[in-house]
Amino acid sequence: GEQSRRRGRAAGLPQSMERGKMAEAESLETAAEHERILREIESTDTACIGPTLRSVYDGEEHGRFMEKLETRIRNHDREIEKMCNFHYQGFVDSITELLKVRGEAQKLKNQVTDTNRKLQHEGKELVIAMEELKQCRLQQRNISATVDKLMLCLPVLEMYSKLRDQMKTKRHYPALKTLEHLEHTYLPQVSHYRFCKVMVDNIPKLREEIKDVSMSDLKDFLESIRKHSDKIGETAMKQAQQQRNLDNIVLQQPRIGSRRKSKKDVYTIFDTEIESTSPKSEQDSGILDVEDEEDDEEVPGAQDLVDFSPVYRCLHIYSVLGARETFENYYRKQRRKQARLVLQPPSNMHETLDGYRKYFNQIVGFFVVEDHILHTTQGLVN
């Protein structure tokens, strides 16, 4: 029996040693794990230690971990206390210096506040003056810009005023030239202004007005020469008779002197300016007011009785506006109608000699006017 007990004790001894070794190994492993967890808690942000704490509670050594945690806390508290004791005097000195700096900073703040108040008070007038100067410079720039714009606009307005004056005084051909100059030279420089747009829109109306007025003058002229063709013809025939008498005298007295020429020729070219303002009769446009001449006085030329400027003016205006063909067609049509009326003898012409005389005077007057137009214009009479 004793031997059996000995053999039993001998067999159980290795098993207990193995269990002790295993327990010691597990204890070391647990201690290492707890140490790792403590380091992780110390080095990790508090917002991220949830998984670490979970691993502690999941294990079976929660009590031992809490003991180690308390030990670690006490160690840190002792270190903090030592550090505070070591730096306490420096901390006190720093607080004392900060209090002194605080007093000086307060004094400096008061000085800065006082200086700022004085500066604001003294600079208020300067700020007002600077604001006034700013406004003055702004006004100066605006005035300068306005003057520059007016310098561009004034020639346009002057030309337009000149145009209106020419229209008012019925100087239509110069008005047309002014209109062309205004449209192509002056208005493009200030085309972005509203009044220029009004002028541009008004230009076609002014052209039509010039055309209408010149055509109206032409109609008055045609009507006038139709009424006074007999007077024109009578004057032309008197002038021709006077010229023939002079020629006869020269032929009969060749030795007395050189041949004299009449001061007025029936077909003298009547050089009339486009804008001539020849005096017209109060009743009829185009016919001058000439009193009856005595037989022994010089008879005026037939062309001296007629102011042809309405024809020339209307011709030039329509030519400039590109409507010369329209003018020529109208003039020729009206003159053909007048020719038919002139060549048709009146029904009572055979009753008196004056009837024949008036009939032939009208024919002569018509062709005198046509001859003058033929020689003073190009292509109007065909």
Rank of each mutant, 00 (worst) to 15 (best):
R6L: 15
R7T: 08
R9M: 09
A10L: 15
S16W: 06
E24H: 10
T30P: 00
A32R: 13
E33N: 10
H34N: 15
R36E: 14
R36A: 11
L38S: 00
P51G: 02
T52S: 06
Y57A: 08
I73V: 14
R74L: 15
N75K: 14
R78A: 14
I80F: 15
M83I: 07
F86M: 09
Q89S: 13
V92H: 01
V92T: 03
K100T: 14
G103N: 03
G103F: 06
E104M: 10
E104R: 08
V112D: 06
V112F: 13
T113W: 08
R117E: 10
K124C: 08
L126N: 05
E132G: 03
L133C: 10
Q139N: 15
S144T: 15
L157F: 05
L157Q: 07
M167T: 01
T169H: 13
K170F: 10
L176C: 01
H192P: 01
E208G: 08
E208R: 02
L218P: 02
K227Y: 09
H228P: 03
G233N: 04
A236M: 03
Q241P: 00
Q241A: 15
Q242V: 02
L246I: 05
I249H: 08
P254C: 06
P254I: 04
R255C: 10
R259E: 14
K264P: 00
T268H: 07
I269G: 01
T272R: 06
E275G: 09
S281V: 01
S285A: 12
D289F: 05
D296E: 15
E298F: 02
E298Y: 03
S309F: 03
Y318W: 04
V320R: 07
N329M: 10
R332P: 05
K337V: 13
Q338F: 13
L343F: 14
M349H: 05
T352R: 01
T352M: 01
L353M: 11
E370T: 08
I373H: 03
I373A: 02
T376P: 02
V381D: 05
